[in-house]
Nucleic acid binder design. Structure first.
Lengths: 246, 246
DNA sequence: CCGCATCCGTTTCGATACTG
DNA sequence: CAGTATCGAAACGGATGCGG
C-alpha cells in the first residue's frame, strides 16, 4: 500500500497525505451527514467508481478516520461511519464549504440540488462571526427552481453557553420546519445565495419580495447572519520595531 | 484545459474542483506566508516538479486565487502572491493544520522543521476556542532537536474587540521574540506538541522541567490555550418530537 | 440486491532535459 | 532565474463480473 506522502514536517502536508487524494474529502463530507452504506455512497458520488471507493474506504479505515460496522439482523448490512477522529474533520469541511459558497451558481437539471446536502450547504451560508449571543431559530422555506421541490430547513443558533463552545458548534441545520421559530424566511434560494455572495444588497434581496422575512423586524437580526466578514487582518502583522530579535 | 470537475451542486465539491488536486493547497500554504518567487516555491515544495508547479500556478491564476506580479527594477523578478480571494483560504489551511497536528511526529534529519512554516505550525497549536478575552503575548523559546536551531517565536492573542472579530483573526505568530511578553515558555517543542496532542498531561509536560513557564502563575492561563475541545455536539441534534414536518 | 475485485483506456504525475 | 517540452509510471474513469 504505502500511499505517497509529501514527506514534510508540517501539519498541513500531514493532513493532506491522508485527505488530499481525489474524492477522499467528499467521502468525509458524505459521512458527516450520518452513517452510510456502500451503495448509498456510490449513489451520492456519481462519477466515482467502485474500485476507487473501495480503495478509499480501506485507506480511511486504516487511517482511523472511518469505521466499518456490520449492523445486526434484522435490518441491514455493512455501514460506514466516521470515527471521532473523522468527526474532527467537520471544521475542515465547513471551511471548504464556506469558501466554496462563493463559487456556487444555481442548481440545474444537470446538477440538481441534493437534498441530503442541503443542511451542510445552508450551514455554510451562516457567518459564524456574527452569531447573536442569545441564539435564534429560523425557518428557511425556500424554492430553488422548477425541478427542485420546496426546501424546508430549520436553522438553529444556540445561545452562548458557559463554558463557551466554539462558534461552529452553536450552529445546526435540520431538515424540515421544526420547533418554534424566531423568524421565517421564504422566497428564492437564489436571492439568499446572491446576498451571501455579496452580489446583491439586502434591500435588493428583500425589497422586491424575492426574499420575505417575517416578522419584518427580524430583518436586522438576520442580515448579519448571512454576511461574512472580509479577510482583513494579515497573519504577519508586526508588533513593534524589534524585527530581528533573537 | 478544462480541468475535471466533480459536477455537483455543493460548495465543498466546487471548492475541491479548484483546490483538490495534488500540491494545490500546499502552494496556497506557501503563499499564505507571503509572496514568493517561482524558485522559492520550488525549494519549499521538494518533490514537486517544474511542470506541475507551472501548471498549478496557471490554474490558480485563472481561478483568481493567485496573482502574478512583476516587481519593478532595481530588485527582483516575478513574484506570486495570493489575491484577496486566495487569502480567504486561510481558515481552510488553518483547520487542516489544526487537524494535522495530531499526526505530527517530531522533526527528523530526513524531514526537518522548516523555519518559514514555524509560525503556521505554532498557530495551529493554539485552541481558538479558549482564547483569553483580555489577550496575551507569549514568547516561545523552544528547541526541536540537535539539527534544528532554537525556535523563537512570539504568539500574540488580541483582546476581544468591538465590533468582534472571529477568533482566528485574533491569533498571530511572528518569528523572533518581540514585544513585552506576559509569559515565556522555554524547553522542548516535543513536550508542547505531546501535550497538545493529548499524549501527556500538563503536569508531566511542565513537571520535569521539560517545559518551563515563567512566571509560574501564568501556567493556568497557558494550559487551555493549547487544549482543544473534543468534538462533542453532533450537527444532527434534534430539537423536538416533530421529525417529519413537511 | 449489496459489497466489492478485476480488467483496460485515458488522464495526471514524477523526473529529466532543454530554452528564453 | 523562470519557466516549457517530453516521456515512462502511477493513478483515475468506466465497465463488467462474481460471491454472499
Amino acid at each position: 500500500m504505502a500511499r505517497r506522502s509529501y514527506e514534510q514536517f508540517c501539519p498541513v502536508s500531514r493532513a493532506l497525505d491522508l485527505l488530499g487524494e481525489r474524492w477522499t474529502l467528499l467521502i468525509v463530507r458524505e459521512l458527516l451527514t450520518g452513517p452510510k452504506r456502500y451503495t448509498d455512497l456510490r449513489e451520492h458520488l456519481p462519477g466515482m467508481w467502485n474500485n476507487l471507493l473501495g480503495q478509499r474506504l480501506r485507506e480511511l479505515e486504516a487511517a482511523g478516520i472511518v469505521h466499518r460496522r456490520d449492523l445486526p439482523p434484522p435490518a441491514a448490512r455493512t455501514v460506514y461511519e466516521l470515527t471521532e477522529r473523522g468527526r474532527e474533520l467537520e471544521p475542515v469541511v465547513y471551511e471548504l464549504a464556506r469558501w466554496g459558497v462563493g463559487l456556487l451558481d444555481l442548481p440545474t437539471p444537470d446538477q440538481p440540488l441534493l437534498p441530503h446536502l442541503l443542511p451542510l450547504g445552508e450551514r455554510s451560508l451562516v457567518a459564524i462571526e456574527h452569531l447573536p449571543d442569545d441564539g435564534i431559530v429560523v425557518h428557511l422555506d425556500l424554492h430553488a427552481g422548477e425541478h427542485d421541490g420546496d426546501l424546508r430547513s430549520t436553522l438553529v443558533v444556540d445561545p452562548v453557553a458557559d463554558p463557551p463552545v466554539r462558534a461552529l458548534g452553536r450552529v445546526h441545520v435540520e431538515p424540515g420546519l421544526v420547533g418554534t421559530p424566531d423568524a421565517v424566511v421564504t422566497g428564492s434560494l437564489a436571492w439568499l445565495l446572491w446576498f451571501r455572495q455579496g452580489a446583491v444588497s439586502w434591500q435588493e434581496a428583500t425589497g422586491e419580495g424575492a426574499l420575505v422575512v417575517r416578522p419584518r423586524r427580524a430583518g436586522p437580526r438576520l442580515r448579519p447572519l448571512f454576511t461574512p466578514d472580509p479577510v482583513t487582518a494579515s497573519p504577519h502583522r508586526r508588533l513593534g520595531p524589534a524585527r530581528d530579535a533573537t
